[in-house]
Write a protein that binds this DNA or RNA. Structure first.
Lengths: 203, 203
DNA sequence: ACTTTCCGGTGACAAATGTCATCGCGGGCC
DNA sequence: GGCCCGCGATGACATTTGTCACCGGAAAGT
């Protein structure tokens, strides 16, 4: 039986190296490539055509979900899974929409991760129960596209004038969108609105 | 020669387990205890009296620096070192002030980490050059104690009235502190001030 | 055809915020 | 003693912001 060929992408050497060593001990798994950034992960996937790509969610260049989307488009036979330290409900939703087969926090053991890789390779799916519960209770984003966009531009605390300029909108319009977004999120001002939207993964 | 006894504290199983396995391969190192939270790390340190404690910076319960401080107070012979994913200048400074012997990002390899543990055990010190450069260029915090305190309470975007209540201060005083803090940081409002202070690790 | 929803905008008004001057108090420092 | 600085507060003022009402157009569903 040929072993499962795995691509490992994580910007933290410590984790990636350690993980590669541990997974290498499993005799039905073989790590064929490693990457430390989003673009690099994609390039490695193209070059090595792994069976399963294990992607960190937060990576420089491009996040795990974008990489997963790109991989699915180019290599339909390659299953993708996401591993992350701080999983937020919206991320899980986006990941599943992108065709990711598994979504797990980094609090799982290497043993468990190896099992997940086998599950995913066999066509199965998996999402961390706790994250799933959060995602369900958080529900869908009530924000319209523009509301989310403006909220994102407001994320660094910029004044409305600057947001309006960057969004090519009237300052009044920006205020209206921010106001309605804050109302929908139950926040008393746009800054807490940004924080709430971030927590739910809606931005 | 007796091996170096190591305590490993990190809330991410994946990393901790993998790391424990890798460090275990080095025949002059032995992982005598593992912990997944700040308090647990302290308890483990008390129980097993390791030579070196490798602490993650961000852990539930208590962060790495607090744990390091507590360990130094109770077990003066135990050297401490911090490993972190996102190192900010101020954290490094706080860590060194707490008597931490080494400060490294998680982008180092396990091999390198093993070397660092040996270095630290031998009485040496180490800080990541890049983080050190950031810390030096960031300089010292220009904020007074109250300014920092009020800024921290403003972190979640709460209105001034709420901050004043939580700080047991007059709303006017809070505004004055926030204003002076924002001026010192070169921010145009308290929210960007909070962000800047966070980036520099001053809150 | 009618209704609903989102986009983009304007105007007006109240509330929150930023900024400045000023005060008294107390602790260091020269 | 005199000086500087931080703390805590007050008042005044301009600006920013949140909130609401309302408008017109475009797209989509009934």
């Amino acid at each position: 039986m040929t072993p499962v060929r795995v691509l490992l992408a994580d910007d933290e050497h410590l984790i990636r190296g350690a993980l590669a060593a541990l997974l290498g001990l499993e005799d039905d798994l073989v790590v064929v490539a490693e990457a430390a950034s989003g673009p690099e992960a994609l390039a490695m996937a193209r070059a090595h055509r792994p069976d399963v790509a294990v992607l960190d969610l937060e990576m420089p260049g491009a996040d795990g979900v974008s990489v997963a989307t790109a991989i699915r488009a180019e290599l339909p036979d390659c299953r993708t899974m996401i591993v992350t330290s701080h999983g937020r409900p919206g991320h899980l939703k986006r990941a599943l929409a992108a065709g990711v087969r598994a979504f797990a926090p980094k609090t799982v053991s290497a043993q468990r991760l190896a099992e997940l890789i086998r599950t995913v390779h066999g066509g199965g799916r998996y999402v961390d129960p706790e994250l799933a519960a959060d995602a369900i209770s958080a529900g869908d984003s009530p924000l319209t596209a523009r509301e989310a966009e403006v909220l994102e531009l407001a994320a660094d605390g910029a004044p409305i004038a600057e947001i309006a300029e960057r969004a090519s909108l009237s300052p009044g319009t920006v205020r209206n969108y921010l106001s309605s977004a804050a109302t929908k999120l139950g926040a008393e001002n746009r800054h807490t609105a940004v924080r709430l939207a971030r927590e739910r993964g809606w931005v």
